[in-house]
């Protein structure tokens, strides 16, 4: 039970950090920020790996491996696509400067 309360405390503090950390985002960065945050929740891969790593039945392992594939898609794809978006941002600037 104390374990539960400790996790609840962490949750409440993380809510405030989450609010605070993006409070000053410029509107041009809305989409990359959303995409980056999307990649971060791909760490559910950690949970998928833990569950797959304790699976002792074939059926359970199959479902857990599906979760591992889905979570990795989210994590890896999320960070790569965000990087590509930001590359686009950076790439736009040099042509603008001479013009």
């Amino acid at each position: 039970m104390t374990e539960g309360v400790a996790l609840l405390t962490v949750f409440v503090l993380a809510v405030f950090v989450g609010f605070e950390v993006v409070s000053k985002v410029s509107s041009t960065l809305h989409t990359p920020l959303m995409s980056g945050a999307n990649a971060i929740h791909g760490v559910i891969l950690v949970g998928s790996v833990i569950v797959a790593g304790t699976a002792d039945e074939a059926g359970v392992l199959v479902v857990a491996l599906i979760a591992v594939v889905l979570a990795t898609l989210n994590l890896v794809g999320g960070f790569v696509v965000t990087d590509r978006m930001l590359e686009m941002f950076g790439g736009k600037r040099p042509p603008d400067a001479p013009a």
Partner: peptide, 26 residues
């Protein structure tokens, strides 16, 4: 975040909550 609570994994809890909170503001 709730999945992190179930697994008693503080990292999942923090990462999920950060995205949930910042995503709401965004």
């Amino acid at each position: 975040a709730a999945g992190g609570y179930v697994l008693e994994n503080a990292l999942l809890l923090v990462a999920g909550t950060l995205v949930g909170a910042s995503g709401t503001i965004l």
